[in-house]
């Protein structure tokens, strides 16, 4: 009993740094500017106002930007799942000549920070006339460096699947793609779940790339839009920024809370094997 209480106490204390910033962000977005810097900071606004939320939509096409971020993240997630599950499966289970070399080449993608290649990439996409479109934000994550992590996770998962499963499928006359599609992939749900979340969040958080590739407001993504809430002279509109930040975080948080059971328990299944 005592132990239980201790565990609860420790958990509660640990919660503070995880929860407080989000709490503060949400409540402060309701405060008028002169309360934001009050010391010590208040847990709850004295004069709550939704003014900042109104301004979020007035100053920028925030709804459109939200849709942009959302659809880009969804397309990227779907595309990455296709590319990475195929590649991960091949690296794990298909004996083909050169697979080792190819794997090393692909892994290199994991090791190249995006700041390194942004200028050559910018030149390439500009050459194709795709600057200030969403294509770079879709194609680079699906095919380029960010998808390598997904492939790596998929490979690590497929490698742990027992050989016997596929032997059985092979006896039933399935080819390689059949084995992949009908036998291995259905078993890979936990890994797929993990990859989907990683990928979605990566795309949702992308900051440098949108800043470099996109230039018109209607095409902006959320993280980029967050930094644009400034007054005429570049001074930050703190409360508006926080209101927009809150709106960028809450829906994803809610979806996560609703779906977290599947996600974590899906991973737990992966844990059984990994």
């Amino acid at each position: 009993m005592k132990l239980k209480l201790t565990v609860y106490a420790v958990l509660l204390v640990c919660c503070v740094p995880f929860v407080f910033p989000t709490w503060w962000m949400a409540t402060t977005s309701l405060k008028p500017v002169n309360e934001i810097f009050a010391f010590p900071p208040a847990l709850w606004p004295r004069d709550a106002t939704l003014d900042a939320y109104r301004q979020v939509f007035e100053l920028q096409p925030f709804a459109q930007q939200y849709v942009n971020s959302l659809y880009i993240a969804i397309v990227v997630t779907a595309g990455t799942l296709v590319v990475s599950s195929l590649a991960g499966y091949a690296f794990a289970r298909v004996p083909f000549r050169g697979s080792g070399v190819v794997f090393v080449i692909v892994l290199a993608g994991l090791l190249v920070p995006n700041e390194v290649t942004i200028i050559p990439l910018y030149r390439m996409f500009d050459g194709l006339g795709l600057v200030n479109t969403h294509w770079p934000l879709i194609l680079i994550p699906i095919l380029g460096a960010p998808s390598v992590l997904a492939t790596f996770i998929m490979r690590q998962f497929f490698i742990t699947l027992p050989r016997e499963l596929e032997e059985a499928g092979r006896v039933d006359g399935l080819g390689r793609f059949g084995l992949f599609w009908q036998v291995s992939l259905p078993l890979a749900k936990p890994a797929i779940g993990a990859v989907a979340i990683f990928t979605f969040l990566h795309s949702w958080n992308l900051f440098l790339e949108p800043i470099v590739f996109l230039s018109s407001k209607e095409k902006f993504t959320i993280p980029q839009a967050l930094t644009q809430y400034v007054d005429a002279y570049g001074g930050a509109l703190w409360n508006v920024q926080l209101a927009a930040a809150t709106m960028s975080a809450l829906p994803v948080l809610i979806v996560f809370v609703l779906a977290q059971r599947q996600f974590v328990e899906g991973l737990a299944q992966a844990g059984l094997k990994g």
Binding site: V83, S84, L86, F96, L143, G144, A145
Partner: peptide
């Protein structure tokens, strides 16, 4: 099959990395 499966990823890495 192996090459086909890794082709999109490999092409992407070559082109984008």
């Amino acid at each position: 099959a192996g090459w086909l499966m890794v082709a999109p990823q490999l092409a992407g890495i070559v082109a984008f990395v």
